[in-house]
């Protein structure tokens, strides 16, 4: 009887551990490079037209580590057919997040034709 109770408690503990473990949010439009691992998560990805006809992308980048994480991000803009809109706007841009901080990422489309995007985040090089 005692043994059975022990198994039950162990199973509960394992399950509780599974539930409380935080997993990174998944968004098919966002790719975080493996070199960053789980050190940053991209959350709250929103696309809207504010005071302009051009779409603006906003997202939060959460630094899960105890140190500064230096990154680069690139936004590739897509038209309604899913075709890439080539632009100098889609070059790697630097950003950094202090320990355990959440920083905002903003990017504006180069054309009103842009309706979708792909966001890439990677570890910054040369810093």
């Amino acid at each position: 009887m005692k043994k059975r109770m022990l198994y039950l408690l162990s199973a509960l503990a394992v399950c509780a551990g599974c539930v409380s473990y935080r997993t990174p949010p998944e968004d098919r439009r966002v790719t975080v490079s493996p070199d960053l691992g789980a050190s940053v998560w991209v959350t709250d990805v929103r696309l809207a037209k504010a005071q302009s006809q051009h779409c603006t992308l906003q997202a939060n980048v959460a630094n899960n580590t105890g140190g500064v994480v230096r990154m680069e991000y690139k936004v590739v803009w897509l038209d309604s057919d899913g075709a890439e809109i080539p632009s100098v706007v889609s070059t790697w841009q630097p950003m950094s997040a202090a320990a355990r901080n959440v920083v905002g990422l903003t990017a504006t489309a180069p054309s009103p034709e842009a309706v979708d995007f792909r966001l890439y985040v990677q570890e910054a090089k040369g810093y």
Binding site: A50, S52, V88, W92, Q93, A107, T108, G126, Y127
Partner: peptide, 29 residues
Amino acid sequence: DHGPQVAGLDYRDLQEAASATLQSLFASG
């Protein structure tokens, strides 16, 4: 381009500055 940084201005700096200024203009409406 993951080449080392240079003290002067290179094409990466110009592209970065152009990208930031253009996005500011597009977002301004």
